[in-house]
Design a binder for these strands. Structure first.
Length: 438
RNA sequence: GUGCCUAUAGCUUAAUGGUAAAGCUCCGCUCUGUGGCAGCGGCUAUACGGGUUCAAUUCCCGUUAGGCACCCCA
């Protein structure tokens, strides 16, 4: 029925050799989206004076166990383990804040300046079921402010940067949710109150787990019954200690000053152990893909200490690149385009083909990005390709031009062409390219 | 990890219990002297395994992969 060849082919490609689940090739057609986002991130980092930091993709498992917490899903069930030859327990980083904190301690970065601002871009890995805007390998860009004081103005600054990021990417219908999850003084007290409130209530199976692991999570259960219970549960915002209350108030004041709209959401609870006080998440509302949290983050005043450093206040957040792209696509943000080559060198005949190599190099060394189709001999097909790529100028070179030591410069937009001396080619091309930009 | 849905060419889609059609793309030619077009020709598919059947791409089961929701999160 079927030939053996095709069966063999199938086994190889369709089964064994595809990319691992939840991990994707970023193909040339996708790169303009990434590049657009990264260029905005770089620009913001520059404007707001954040310096780039890059940490290894592998870290010791212990870093996340201590920093993020073994009870969290991320660390408890989603880490990829990598065996070191010497028995080291390494993991693919599931997030980037703990590694940055580790680097901060390890290199005594707090010594060179009391306040440090970092940004990073890179992949993180979590073994979870892939979904819209959620992958096992995903890319994040984050901003962290470490050291200095715990002034709420830094919380506001981090939020501001992500607000600007979303604006610059033309993402609409942004909703910013802000909450405080207290500090080590008031959180335990609140947890106790929450537990005693829920103690004899009937909970959904999920919440029965939550109450053991992270009682704060009870507040964002979607189960109908649990939602009802929540209504009369104690509200953390009423129970914050004085210091946390005034800190949160400070954040609100700065956000007001910056005219950044936000809503207080006392059900907003971040999953990682290191957060304290301010937590925030951006969402999109209504039209557009619901891909969960967009940029999100919060304050983590205890993390550095938990990792063995000295008590150091810090606040930061991260954005998932793939989620931003998913939302941009869903909201019909215009696809960023790879900038087209401006100049196409065309040849007619063998001799011209050979000589056009030098013409190309001459242009390139003058800083002009030039392309060609030296594999095609028909001028028509070269023109067709140039047209498809949106090239501005065609330089046509054949027998006649070799003889005259000239070259034809054709403007593919105006359809006008003229023959110019070969020696002036760089100037002529520059002149014409500049003309377009006025 | 739990649940639901899906699987036909590179892409998008069609059809059928009797092995498949089209558009776009790609390749070649017309075409070594002028582009967006055209003409002609070409490559490539029923995810995998099993079952029912004279016959399965079609019906059933399993696997795998993908999608979506939950959980959680960027």
């Amino acid at each position: 029925m079927k030939n053996k060849k095709s069966e063999k082919k199938k086994e190889n490609i369709k089964d064994g050799l595809r990319a691992p689940k939840g991990m994707h090739d970023i193909l040339p057609s996708e790169w303009p989206w990434y590049e657009k986002i990264y260029s905005v991130v770089n620009e913001l980092a520059d404007f707001y004076n954040f310096s780039r930091i890059e940490t290894p993709i592998l870290e010791r498992a212990e870093l996340f166990e201590r920093g993020v917490g073994t009870d969290t899903d991320i660390v408890g069930k989603e880490m990829y383990f990598v065996k070191g030859r010497n028995g080291d327990k390494l993991v693919l980083r599931p997030e980037m804040t703990a590694p940055v904190a580790r680097a901060y301690i390890e290199h005594h970065l707090g010594r060179s300046a009391s306040l440090q601002k970092f940004f990073y871009k890179g992949s993180a890995f979590r073994h979870e079921r892939p979904q819209l805007g959620r992958f096992r390998q995903f890319n994040q860009a984050g901003f962290e402010v470490i050291g200095g004081s715990n002034d709420p103005i830094y919380d506001a600054e981090v939020i501001l940067i992500f607000q600007r990021l979303l604006e610059k990417l033309k993402i609409k219908n942004i909703v910013l949710k802000v909450n405080s999850i207290g500090c080590k003084v008031c959180r335990p007290i609140y947890k106790k109150q929450l537990l005693s409130y829920y103690k004899d209530k009937k909970l959904c199976p999920d919440c029965q787990k939550r109450i053991k692991i992270n009682p704060l999570r009870l507040l964002d259960c979607k189960n109908e019954n649990c939602v009802k219970l929540k209504a009369s549960a104690p509200n953390f915002l009423d129970k914050l200690c004085a210091a946390c209350t005034s800190h949160l108030k400070g954040v609100f004041e700065y956000l007001d000053e910056l005219k950044i709209p936000y809503m207080v959401d006392n059900a907003l609870v971040r999953g990682l152990d290191y957060y304290s006080r301010t937590v925030f998440e951006f969402f999109t509302e209504g039209a557009g893909a619901d891909v969960g949290a967009l940029p999100a983050g919060g304050r983590y005043d205890y993390l550095i200490e938990m990792l063995g450093g000295r008590m150091t206040p810090a606040v930061g957040g991260a954005a998932g690149i793939e989620r931003l792209i998913a939302v941009m696509k869903a909201q019909d943000v215009e696809q960023p385009r790879r900038s087209a080559k401006k100049v196409f060198v065309m040849h007619v005949g063998e001799m011209a083909k050979k000589k056009s190599l030098n013409i190309l190099e001459k242009l390139r060394s003058a800083g002009i990005s030039a392309t060609e189709a030296l594999g095609r001999d028909s001028l028509k097909s070269q023109m067709r390709l140039a047209d498809r790529e949106g090239v501005k100028l065609a330089l046509i070179f054949g027998q006649k031009e070799i003889f005259e030591n000239s070259i034809i410069v054709r403007d593919l937009e105006t359809h006008l062409q003229e023959s110019v001396p070969m020696d002036t080619i760089v100037e002529e091309v520059k002149k014409r390219l500049a003309r377009k930009n006025k």
